[in-house]
Write a protein that binds this DNA or RNA. Structure first.
Length: 206
DNA sequence: ACAATGATTGACT
DNA sequence: GTCAATCATTGTG
């Protein structure tokens, strides 16, 4: 993060029903894991909002309940982690009150702590930028997989994965754009529900 | 039981 | 720019 950003101490209310505003607010928060005693963390620089039941891009479109989507209906602040393309884990934070199937996909981080551990997981020769500049990459770097699905991301829960306030991102540095990789979502693919920090080198795609 | 597919990535032309 | 990897999940029979 740029050094002129001021600290942030405000915990987000993931029970809020405005998942789009939450996705925007989540920029500048820090995502952390402690696995095998090793702390790894990164600052969230890119997010997307998914708002079932009406959002055709959401796995829970039409309030579809399956074994996979069930955690999306849990209370805001629960982790939703799934496997994409048979290879990559993707990390989301469930939002809204119970039975409201909203979620925020975390798409990119700026590496913060545990870069050495991240390289053990991602590869020794991976550059800082390539460590966490994508939703699958950041999960690999932080050791996030399905064993962490359905957990509270509140720091006080004591879970091995959590989100905490870190820096404030000025509103005028936040870019909104169309979500990535949802060509099947018809009119919903036009929604400007992706948010990233302007000029941040760790964003997945510009 | 089976076939299609995906909120991606890395390798390659 | 193109394309294959690789498998849990899903819908269908």
């Amino acid at each position: 993060m740029s050094e002129d950003n001021s600290p942030n101490t405000e915990y987000l209310d993931f029970q809020s029903t405005d998942v789009v505003a939450l996705a925007k607010s989540l920029l500048g928060y820090r995502l952390c894991t402690r696995i095998g005693g090793q702390l790894t963390s990164g600052v969230i620089v890119e997010t997307e909002a998914y708002r079932a039941p009406e959002d055709k891009a959401s796995h829970a479109y039409g309030n579809r309940r399956t074994a996979r989507t069930e955690v999306i209906f849990k209370a805001g602040g629960t982790s939703y982690i799934y496997l994409c393309y048979g290879i990559h884990h993707l990390f989301n934070i469930v939002s809204g009150p119970p039975e409201t199937a909203h979620a925020i996909l975390v798409r990119a981080l700026e590496p913060d702590a545990g870069l050495t551990e991240m390289r053990l997981r991602r590869g020794e020769k991976i550059s800082d930028k390539q460590l966490t500049n994508g939703p699958g990459k950041l999960c690999q770097a932080l050791g996030i997989d399905r064993t962490l699905n359905g957990l509270s991301v509140n720091k006080s829960s004591g879970n091995p994965l959590w989100v905490e306030p870190y820096v404030q991102v000025p509103t005028d540095e936040i870019i909104k754009s169309k979500r990535v990789g949802i060509d099947y979502a018809e009119e919903w693919k036009e929604k400007l529900w992706r948010f990233h920090i302007h000029g941040n080198p760790y964003v997945s795609v510009i």
